[in-house]
């Protein structure tokens, strides 16, 4: 074990790729005001079409928030902005008090503690389920560390426990590409768990799931809330009802209404948008 350790220190001193991280180190997350996500006046336009229009949204620490809204309301674009995939034309996005999301790129945002589950399940299809979880595991993700990284017994245990949580223990060594649609969704949630983020963005987690699968997913997400803040985008109102405490309705790129599900459902503007003129 001496040689890898020596190499690690060597790699440590070199920090060959260190300067590729732009700007300063990401500051620690500070949620002292009990708000974990600030989105203020965000506007994103594609060829004149405003996908987000002065969107302002706050998410509290430990909250489980559901975002609903018709197609094209800007839900996915909002996620893209938070995770650094899309840069807004104007506005600001802060993660806690100290982290300006607009200054960071995707890996930095992920390292800062924001995890994302995509609408279409994206897992690494050529890797096994176990490997998918291993890849997502929180920790130093720089090249030299990863090259000589060995799984510690504690880490293996953690992976096994997540496998249990998402119910894929039997598929441990199966190719992720061979999983069913629902299993892929869970695997992705499992990857989020491995990442251990402060804020989880979950895009349509129950699309295409059977009722049993949906129920299981709801349990999973509820189990996450409290320790983590979770933002769920979903169409399925029954599912939203089963998990949500606070709901935000997006429409044409900005917030139409916010409150408990009942409040929102009785909101005249929301009714108009959903039921038509």
């Amino acid at each position: 074990m001496k040689l890898p350790a020596a190499l690690e220190t060597f790699a440590d001193r070199e920090h060959v790729f260190e300067f590729m991280a732009r700007g300063s180190r990401v500051p620690r997350l500070d949620v002292s005001h009990n708000v974990i996500l600030y989105l203020e006046d965000i506007t994103v336009a594609f060829d004149g079409f405003r996908a987000l229009n002065d969107l302002t949204l706050y998410v509290d620490a430990g909250e489980l928030r559901c975002i609903i809204g018709p197609n094209g309301a800007g839900k996915t674009t909002m996620m893209d902005v938070i995770t650094g995939k899309t840069r807004p034309d104007s506005g600001s996005a802060w993660f806690g008090q100290t982290i300006d999301l607009l200054q960071l790129d995707e890996p930095e945002i992920a390292a800062a503690g924001i995890g994302r589950k995509f609408q279409k399940p994206t897992v690494f299809t050529e890797h096994s389920v176990f490997e998918n979880l291993e890849l997502a595991m929180a920790g130093d993700k720089r090249v030299w560390r990863i090259l000589f990284a060995k799984l510690t017994p504690a880490q293996i245990e953690r992976i096994e426990s997540v496998l249990e949580t998402i119910g894929l223990k039997d598929q441990r060594d199966a190719r992720a590409g061979s999983l069913s649609h629902g299993q892929k969704q869970w695997l992705e949630i499992g990857m989020l768990l491995m990442q251990d983020p402060q804020l989880l963005l979950v895009d349509e987690p129950v699309a295409g799931m059977t009722p049993q699968e949906t129920e299981r997913t709801a349990e999973l997400l509820l189990g996450l809330a409290g320790k983590h803040s979770v933002v769920v985008v979903e169409h399925d109102m029954a599912f939203v009802r089963s998990i949500a405490r606070k709901v935000t309705v997006l429409h044409e790129g900005s917030v139409l209404a916010e409150g408990s599900l009942d409040e929102v459902q009785n909101n005249a503007k929301v009714v108009e948008v959903y039921l038509g003129e």
């Binding site: 790729f17 590729m20 992920a110 690494f124 050529e126 993700k141 990863i146």
Partner: peptide, 24 residues
């Protein structure tokens, strides 16, 4: 190595690898 698995992950889904925190 685990880096090898990351590299293949990048090959198959580059964006995903970024979102779980790898500097692709």
């Amino acid at each position: 190595s685990r880096a090898g698995r990351v590299i293949r992950a990048i090959r198959d889904a580059e964006g995903r690898a970024r979102f779980i925190g790898y500097r692709v």
